[in-house]
Structure formats: C-alpha cells, structure tokens
C-alpha cells in the first residue's frame, strides 16, 4: 500500500466500476440493447452491401468496426443518461472522492461493456461469414481501439447527457473526433485478417496507441470541469 490518496483513488474507481457492473448484472438492459443493435446492424449491412459468405477481409473489418462504433454510442449514452436521471452523479459528487476516479470508473465500465459486445460479435461474425476473426492481432486492435473510443466517448457522453438535445448530440460530438481511431482500427484489423506483414500494420497500431494515450490523459485532465456544479 502506498500513500492513502492513491489508494482512495483506486478504491473509488473500483467502487464506481463495481456499481456499474453489478447494476448491469441485475438488469442486463444495456448489454442486451447493444448486442441486439449490433446484430441488426450486421444484418442491415448484409443486405445493403450484398455481402458474400466468403467476405473480403478488408470489408469485414469495416463492417465490424462500424457495428462496434454504433453499438458503443448506444451504450455510452445509456450509461451516462442513467447516472444523470437517477441523480447518481450528484450523489457521487457529494462523496469525498477524486472526480477523476469517477471518470476512470465509468470509462472502465464502458470499456468492459464494449469488450463483452466485441467478444460476442467476433465469433458470431465469423460464424455468419465463415471466417476466423479471433486472431491475437485482432484482439489487440479491439482492445486498443475500444479503449480510445471509450476514453473520448465517456468524456463526451457525460457532456451530451447534460444538454437539452441529449438524445441526438452524442454521435454528432463523438464521430468527427473519433474518426482517427476508427480508421486506424479498421486498417489494422484488415491488415491482420489479410495477414499483411507487420510493417504495414505497425503505423496503425502506433496511431491507435498515440490516440489512446493523448485522449485518455486529456480526459483525465478536463473531466473535473464537466462535473462541477
């Protein structure tokens, strides 16, 4: 155990994370909505693009990430709207914890949800299109990509839910900012699926890493000023 401040930060983070996971375990409303939505998106893509059963690797990477991005928006909006509506944010604010811990906890919970969705989508996707998507490289890209997505997404969603136009605002705020992550994730996933040499994939992994670091740290710095009332 180090200094008490550090301990209380992690304790608070874990408490928020635990609260979200426990609530989700009881209701399962967020995950089930994300999953059904993701499935529907895949089905729409199938008809809209007339996908073949043996899908081109580059195309399936794109479909996969668009699906995850859309489903993620649904989850993020719900996750923070619940806090707002039940007044949980106010309760959390009254608690003598670091605000950054609230952000960390919420972001971790959202990341877990995204990863659960991805863990179910990847095998299903492989089943539908007769392809194996569960490669170590793809798993790495999903981890990195969803981290960056959730880091910005949690920050922006906590602003969006406090606005009058909150139902429509999150994708408009999030998508233009998150484009580099989606581009990099699509290209890296496609690279691994096409078994390209690592030199061609590495720039995308680097970009994902840089994005994750920049946006996670900036979110920690500015989150304080979103929650103060």
């Amino acid at each position: 155990m180090k200094a008490t401040g550090a301990v209380s930060f992690w304790q608070a983070t874990l408490a928020v994370l635990w609260k979200d996971l426990a609530a989700e375990w009881r209701s399962r409303e967020l995950l089930s909505a994300m999953l059904v939505f993701a499935l529907l998106v895949i089905f729409i893509f199938n008809f809209a693009l007339e996908l073949q059963t043996q899908l081109r690797a580059s195309l399936s990477a794109g479909v996969l990430w668009v699906t995850l991005t859309f489903a993620g928006t649904l989850g993020l909006n719900r996750s923070l709207a619940v806090e707002k509506d039940r007044g949980c944010l106010d309760g959390l604010l009254l608690a003598p914890v670091d605000r950054a811990a609230i952000y960390a906890g919420k972001a971790l919970a959202n990341w877990v949800f995204m990863l659960i969705v991805a863990a179910i989508m990847l095998p299903l996707f492989g089943l539908f299109y007769n392809a194996s998507l569960i490669l170590p490289g793809v798993v790495l890209v999903v981890l990195l990509g969803s981290e960056g997505y959730v880091a910005v997404g949690t920050l922006l969603a906590s602003m969006a839910v406090q606005a009058r136009t909150r139902d429509i605002l999150l994708p408009i705020l999030l998508f233009p900012v998150v484009i580099p992550v989606v581009v990099a994730a699509v290209k890296a996933t496609g690279g691994y699926l096409q078994t390209l040499p690592l030199e061609e994939i590495r720039p995308w992994l680097n970009l994902l890493g840089v994005y994750d670091v920049i946006f996670t740290s900036v979110a920690f710095m500015v989150f304080d000023s979103i929650l103060e009332e």
Partner: peptide, 10 residues
C-alpha cells in the same frame, strides 16, 4: 472549452 480542446487535438 472542453470540446474545443478535444476537437483541436483530434
């Protein structure tokens, strides 16, 4: 202010 910072970084 927050969004201007995040947007410009992206």
């Amino acid at each position: 202010a927050v969004y201007a910072i995040v947007g410009f970084l992206s």
